[in-house]
Amino acid sequence: MNYAISVRHLTKDFRIGIRGLKLRAVDDLSLEIPRGQVYGLLGPNGCGKSTTLKVVLGLVSATAGEISILGEPSATSAARRRTGFLPEAPYFHKFLTGRELVRYCAQLSGVAASELDAAVEDALGLAAMNEAAGRPIGTYSKGMLQRIGFAQAVVHDPELIILDEPTAGVDPVGSASIGRMIHAMRDKGKTVVLCSHLLGQVEQVCDRVAIMDRGKLVLEGAVEDVLSRRDRHVMTIEAMTPTARAAAEAALEAHGAKITSVTHPRRSLEDLFRELVTGSRDA
């Protein structure tokens, strides 16, 4: 199977201080990210996720190991041409307008001159930034910065998109908007790799996740598989009376099953917030 990203025995050591002590940020990591999915890379601060992404993008060199992107060695221009990247807390030149920034990034990414205008407008449309694209980036809010950052990452129609903390500091409406953009990319057959601390959002958006801790891979798999407790079931029952409850308990006990708890379902605060707040405050 052709993977979007293939990491084999990646190790990265940093030298710190005058004595050159080694700090092992990534320790023998092996990972394969399939194409056409949204992949979440999770872990606490300092676990090595950002370092792993930087090595994948060729911003930092590996101490040991091999990495390939879409079948090509990762540090090559050819690989980077098919990759889009949004860094954590993106910062762009404030004097450029949104459109100028996306155009600039499109030019650097090798978009042909004849296709430039269309590509820029498509990317701005995808990020819902058409209206604000004529304003200097210095006037943008946090959410708009993330969206214009997303636009510059996808303007050259890459096959692989890497997003580092795309919703950090963004309100739930903005986060949901970014989530929809991520799914739109997946539906087009792109692979999206997502690094985030916001577990609730990762759970909603990602198809597969990998969890890292202290430079090592702790867990990897489809979200559904890793989160499900196959030994337990949840049933949602409407209009349950005490009599009905007792009858149900008896029936289940007859088959060797047991009800361990009965509670009322809850919706999340995020869902409630989104229901109550209409539209984006950013436009």
């Binding site: 911003l59 221009s77 860094p87 993106p90 030149h93 990034c105 650097l108 990414s109 950052g149």
Partner: peptide
């Protein structure tokens, strides 16, 4: 320092 270099160098820019 602003990490714009990250964004640029992640592109096919040597």
């Amino acid at each position: 320092d602003n990490k714009t270099a990250l964004t640029l160098l992640a592109k096919p820019l040597s």
